[in-house]
Write a protein that binds this DNA or RNA. Sequence first.
DNA 1: CGGGCGCTTGATTATGTTCAACTTCAGTGG
DNA 2: CCACTGAAGTTGAACATAATCAAGCGCCCG
Lengths: 235, 235
Amino acid sequence: MPKTIKKGICSRCYIRNRSIFSELSYEQLDKLQNFSPTVTSYQTKEVIYYQNDNSSNAFTLRSGMVKLTKSLPDGRTQIIRILKQGDLFGFDGFANQNYNQTATALTECELCHLPITGLQKLRQSEAEIDTAIMNRWLNNLNAAENMMLTLGAQKASERLANFLVHWGEEENDEWKKMPLSRKDIGDLLGLTIETVSRFLSQWKKMGLIQEYRGNVLIKNKTELCEVINPKGTCE
Amino acid sequence: MPKTIKKGICSRCYIRNRSIFSELSYEQLDKLQNFSPTVTSYQTKEVIYYQNDNSSNAFTLRSGMVKLTKSLPDGRTQIIRILKQGDLFGFDGFANQNYNQTATALTECELCHLPITGLQKLRQSEAEIDTAIMNRWLNNLNAAENMMLTLGAQKASERLANFLVHWGEEENDEWKKMPLSRKDIGDLLGLTIETVSRFLSQWKKMGLIQEYRGNVLIKNKTELCEVINPKGTCE
DNA sequence: CGGGCGCTTGATTATGTTCAACTTCAGTGG
DNA sequence: CCACTGAAGTTGAACATAATCAAGCGCCCG
């Protein structure tokens, strides 16, 4: 499991404007350098940390995708969150907790280590960082709560259609990267591999979606939204 | 819908030590008085705020219980969180969002209004308050994520047993107050009224639990835990 | 070219929902 | 105090949805 390590230079970081440091001036960014942030790389399927490991570092995802998961003793697994470029994760240490999830690379990826104690100081001295982190916490909470609604109240086809429609909305490309296996999608939506596969096959035959090597294309968003909410418009 | 209103005096508040102000000195508490906190009462089933209302106030629950819910357009509902004495809620305004849930009184209850802008200033000036609020956010996030695991990966009996075992753990009384209807329990666990009723009846017949007028008693925790996790110990 | 993993598809089963009738309980008014 | 009412809860039967079991396909990688 090779893991290349290098030093980062915050003021030149190419994902700075997507990170919690996006609102900082160059002067403020220079302060971060005390921090001497390290950058590490992970391969697909490599575990970044395990649930209950000591959370001394938070992370910013520089490139690639990561999944956070929780599991029951018998192995049944739920994906809690899927992380994309610029996302902050592993911040449980702020509340003196160990990591509450297991983080696994879905693709090759690169991430920046942010020591919790250092971040905590920065949060107190730089209001922009405090706001950025707080917003991310509250957005995470809101997203988790929306997922609770999905998991608790929607049925298989609704969950899956909802997931597809909202996947990668923020991107511009028509074809969205989707490095999730059927198992991953199932673990995210509380479904089995077979159920996921069946609906996707059906929607492909109906011409609602296309798939090609880990990429998806929504061909008919309107009709896919009908699956979610038969009456109303799509969101 | 009568709603009595009075002024609170933080330094004498009887739930102070359960609130986000529990770590403050009396001097610091006096500062809060600028705040001139108002206290309001609600009756059972009264709505405190609706999802999408402007979130200018957060609240501390002084007495009673409250549920936070989200609903789909067709009315299917998920309970997101159940609030007890000392809990903080309605803080979506910190991220400039409107309320993300609807808050409804489960019992008669009394709550203290905390203007977001004022709290935000306090968070910056008093480190203890910042820590207290941050801990609550992160604990809420963790709880929501645990619920995602429950909703996504566990089956009906497991969810219900798990819910019962952990309900009111922090209290000492053997009989726990449980002002939730079968519908509420269903909305919390993603089940129907009938499914909830069936398992509860069964467990009553088996002598695992007792119920009396909105109170429950776990008679046989060990066996109830077997339902959740057939092999291992409880928890 | 072979092996294995991930995916698909069908058949069967289990779990939980839906529908419906009935019971219990709390609150109301005579 | 009791009879009445409506809401909440229970229980059974039929049904639907998704899980499980099983077989086979296709693609990627060595």
